[in-house]
């Protein structure tokens, strides 16, 4: 992260302790998505309206219980950014006409999973960015349609077992590069984060909060249920995603991509893969060397490109 950035968050102990997101949500124990949302919410503050799409987090608010101290609107899987457009425009109209005071204004935050962000909602997201909509998009990416039992989604990594890719090769497709797709729209800000690197996450949310225009953030969200690991491992698995270079932490601003964490010596991807049941078939009953090498090669290629750009 560039040193000229002024931030409140240099160390974990600087992070806010307000815990705005209420307890008592029906998310799975150890949910990596909820972890990212509670961290982000503490920085965004109460003056937010979350506009939600169908996904795991639909169930954050089940009548009469909501964990939000601010507001929330549920729309549909495909159209949360359009809901954000409607809310933002209506707030602007009322601000312009003096019907609400500036201090009553809200930050509009779209909250969707990868199913919506990488797939069904892409059209409405593209439209919102093209309009220069002033909003934050927070995608909790658990790499599958987790709410319905982890079927493969456009964000599922190559080789992963899902409930719709149960064969020995796992999922045959490749995870879509949503960061690049979003960045190609040239919005105000795009970033990848993970809740297991909370300082990096906090600084990016802080930066996004300070900007105007479309600001889009993808949070890789380790999912004990869908990825098949013990819930206590959520943080460890998230750290390994970064250490192995599987989940690059980066941001896009003013036409430029910057990596905010470059693992000095990347751990082999299998350290990350072998901890998750969804990749167990790559190790048992025998190692699938070809697939492991292919996954490693893709990661190496990616970082070779990064080093070339920076070198």
């Amino acid at each position: 992260m560039s040193d000229e950035t002024i931030t409140l968050y240099k160390h974990m102990k600087d992070l806010p302790s307000n815990r705005l997101l209420g307890t008592g949500t029906p998310m799975c124990a150890g949910c990596g998505g909820l972890l990212a949302i509670h961290q982000a919410y503490d920085i965004l503050g109460e003056k937010t309206v979350f506009v939600n799409a169908a996904g795991c987090m639909t169930l954050l608010a089940v009548y009469p219980y909501t964990p939000f101290r601010g507001s929330w609107l549920y729309t549909s899987m495909a159209s949360a950014p359009a809901g954000a457009q409607g809310v933002r425009d209506a707030l602007d109209i009322q601000l312009a006409r003096g019907r609400i005071k500036p201090e009553e204004d809200l930050q509009v935050v779209v909250l969707t999973g990868d199913g919506a962000a990488y797939g069904m909602g892409m059209s409405s997201t593209s439209s919102a960015i093209e309009h220069g909509l002033d909003f934050i998009y927070l995608c909790y990416d658990n790499e599958g349609y987790a709410n319905t039992g982890q079927q493969s989604s456009p964000a599922t990594p190559h080789g992963a077992r899902t409930s719709t890719s149960t064969g020995p090769q796992g999922f045959g497709g490749h995870k879509k590069d949503l960061f690049a797709i979003w960045a190609a729209h040239r919005p105000a800000y795009v970033a990848t984060v993970i809740a297991t690197e909370p300082v990096d996450l906090a600084r990016k949310i802080e930066k996004a909060k300070g900007l105007k225009g479309s600001r889009l953030i993808i949070a890789l969200s380790p999912c004990p249920t869908g990825w098949d690991f013990d819930p206590r491992e959520t943080v460890e698995i998230g750290r390994l995603a970064v250490k192995t270079g599987m989940w690059p932490l980066k941001e896009y601003e003013n036409g430029k991509v910057t990596h905010t964490r470059v693992p000095p010596k990347r751990a082999p991807v299998e350290e990350y893969l072998e901890k998750q049941g969804r990749f167990a078939h790559l190790f048992h009953p025998r190692r699938n060397e070809a697939m492991l090498a292919e996954i490693q090669a893709r990661v190496d290629d990616y970082w070779a490109g990064v080093e070339a750009d920076h070198g």
Binding site: V51, L73, T75, S76, A78, S79, A80, P81, A82, G83, A84, Q85, G86, V87, D89, A90, L91, D92, I93, Q94, R99, I100, S123, S124, S126, S127, H131
Partner: peptide, 26 residues
Amino acid sequence: CRLVTLESEHSMITAAGAAASTGVRV
């Protein structure tokens, strides 16, 4: 008045409902 062209009617009706919920005549 503010007119915004969305990318589909699905989005259009979402925005209409969201804006009405936020407090303007749509």
